[in-house]
C-alpha cells in the first residue's frame, strides 16, 4: 500500500482544523474517518514521524502574548551561506527560515516576547554577520489559516 493513502490525506485535512479541548479529542476525529481511536493515533504519529507534518499542537501568536513577529530577509553571498545560516538558526527567536531563489535568498520569521525583541535580534544578526537584515513586519493581514489540501 502506498502511504500516505487516501485516509492519511483525509486525516491531514482534518488535523488542520482546530482540535477541540475535550477529554478525548482524537476519538471524535476517528469517528469522522471511521477509524478506531488507536488506529487514528497511529496514523497521526506516522505522519509526524515521516515528516508529513512538522508539528502537531497549538499555534501561538507572539503578538497576542505581548511580543511580536517579523518577516526578515537577507542577501547572503553563496560562499558564506552555511556560516550565516548557522548563526541565524542558532537564535531561538528564529521560528522559520526558508531559502528562496532570489538575490534576497534567506527569509526568516522572528518571534519575540517583546516588541523591542525584533529590533534587538535583527540588529544582533546584522552585527554578527555583517549583512543587512531587511524587516517586513505585517501591516495588515488579509487571510489567515494555512491549509494544504492533501
Amino acid at each position: 500500500m502506498i502511504r500516505p493513502d487516501k485516509t492519511d490525506r483525509a486525516l491531514l485535512n482534518l488535523l488542520q482544523e482546530d482540535l477541540p479541548l475535550t477529554h478525548r479529542p482524537f476519538a471524535a476525529l476517528a469517528a469522522r474517518l471511521e477509524l478506531t481511536e488507536p488506529a487514528l493515533l497511529d496514523r497521526v504519529t506516522w505522519l509526524r514521524d515521516e515528516g508529513y507534518i512538522t508539528r502537531f499542537g497549538p499555534f501561538f501568536d507572539a503578538a497576542a502574548m505581548g511580543g511580536a513577529f517579523c518577516l526578515c530577509a537577507m542577501a547572503v553571498p553563496a560562499a558564506d551561506f552555511d556560516a550565516v545560516l548557522t548563526k541565524v538558526n542558532a537564535r531561538p527567536e528564529v521560528a522559520h527560515n526558508y531559502e528562496r531563489a532570489h538575490r534576497l535568498n534567506m527569509w526568516f520569521v522572528l518571534a519575540t516576547e517583546t516588541p523591542e525583541g525584533i529590533a534587538q535580534t535583527a540588529d544582533a544578526i546584522e552585527r554578527e554577520t555583517g549583512l543587512k537584515v531587511l524587516r517586513f513586519p505585517k501591516l495588515q493581514e488579509f487571510y489567515i489559516g494555512f491549509r494544504v489540501a492533501a
Binding site: L19, L47, Y52, I53, P58, F59, A64, V148
Partner: peptide, 21 residues
C-alpha cells in the same frame, strides 16, 4: 480556552510540510 479567546493560541492543529506532501 482562555488563550484561544485572547488570540495567544490561534488553533491546535497540524503544521503540514508541503514539500513532503
Amino acid at each position: 480556552a482562555a488563550m484561544k479567546s485572547t488570540g495567544v493560541i490561534r488553533r491546535i492543529a497540524a503544521a503540514p510540510n508541503h514539500f513532503q506532501l
